[in-house]
Amino acid sequence: MTMPNGYNRNEQMALFDEISQLSFALDEIRLFLDTHPDNADALELYGKYGSKRREAVETYTNKYGPIDSYNVNTMNGWSWIDEPMPWKMEGN
């Protein structure tokens, strides 16, 4: 896979981390809302983090590759299976 223009490893890692953090916030809020479905504060937080996450995922997907398999940009082939897989990002 050829790298798109504007490829910047630091930006990629920062965006990926932002997606991880926003997703975790939503994971946590989701569980809380399951047992507190009428909690207005939680619902508002869910909306706020949800739209930030959507933005981050869209930016990342357009520049660096897919996070989920329903939005793969197939212009350069099937990038869904590009390496590294998430479990192979060991430290060095």
């Binding site: 990926f16 994971d27 989920d68």
Partner: peptide, 15 residues
């Protein structure tokens, strides 16, 4: 289920 291509929390083991 849908898979997201990330771990919920990073695993980066050097040793």
């Amino acid at each position: 289920w849908e898979y997201e291509k990330r771990l919920q929390f990073p695993v980066k083991i050097k040793r």
